[in-house]
Amino acid sequence: MSNLAQLFFDAASLGGLYAMAALGIALIFGVMKLVNFAHGEYIAFCVFALIVPSTDAVAVMFLGKAPALILIPVILGLGAAIAVASEYVVFRHLRKADPVAMMIASFALGFVIRNALLATYGGRPKAVSLWPGLNTPVDIAGASVPLLQLIVILSTLLVVTGLALLLKKSRIGLEMRAAAENFTMARLLGVRANRVITGAFALSGALAAAVALIMVTQTGVADVRMGGQIMLVAFIATVLGGLGSLPGAVAAGFLVGIVSVVLQAWLPLEARPFRDAFLYTLVIVCLLVRPQGLFVPASAKPRV
């Protein structure tokens, strides 16, 4: 029983993390059909913003020293800022280009950010202890659950409902949904393209920052590579959820997290290092059966 509860908390928190990352990808894809390969690097950027720039092996806290009430909004703002800046510098000039060209440009941009981080911080992973108290376990339903896992699950729920409310109830949310469905028609009705796109990038960047904070607290490491793996999972979740569908991305993010945790628990010991290979193969097999995505009605045409 307690094992099962443990599994549940693991799956819910990992799934929540993946869902947030997938939302960040799906938001931008929705409004401008861009598969943003720089997203993982936004995450890495936010992680490294916590520590003082240096190539030394030991990390010295920089922003990470600030109290949570200041730190969280600052990092979220920083994530939003780098995403908006990348739109302004790169993607704005590719608005008329086809999605493939935008995708390659984002890949190049991600590579630039990654190498800039490598040059300033060095290539070795660094130990970072942000809010170490959060890893103390709490007993719930017979499982000992790190406080952080509870916080992750709660904040995921908070972020997802917050975003849903924003999209459903606010002016910018309405404009984003309209633009995602038919950008030209929305503009003909006076919706400002720049406002919608900037808004989507800002939200996406803030989501990347939230993912960064959670990951760094959970793992205690700052590593340039940490954005790449979760971005791949996020991509897979957005495809699995049906490209462009936000609820689909959230659901698929959770699903991938759950399957990943279950594989980790049930795979024989010698097969565990290959977990991700099993996971991705499973995903490709799923897509064979439903190429339009799992959470999209079969009648829907692929959007790209």
């Binding site: 059909k33 598969v35 999605p99 493939v100 995708m103 793996q229 791949l232 991509f235 897979i236 957005t238 495809v239 490209l243 290092p273 290959f274 991700d276 290979a277 991705y280 193969t281 995903v283 490709i284 097999v285 897509l287 064979l288 190429p291 692929p302 790209v304």
Partner: peptide, 27 residues
Amino acid sequence: AILRLSGIAASIATFAFLAIVNTVYSN
């Protein structure tokens, strides 16, 4: 498997394929 998907989705799946190969060969 991958080429049953449409353009962009297929590209993402190729990325997953790369990760599969890398995971297998690294372990």
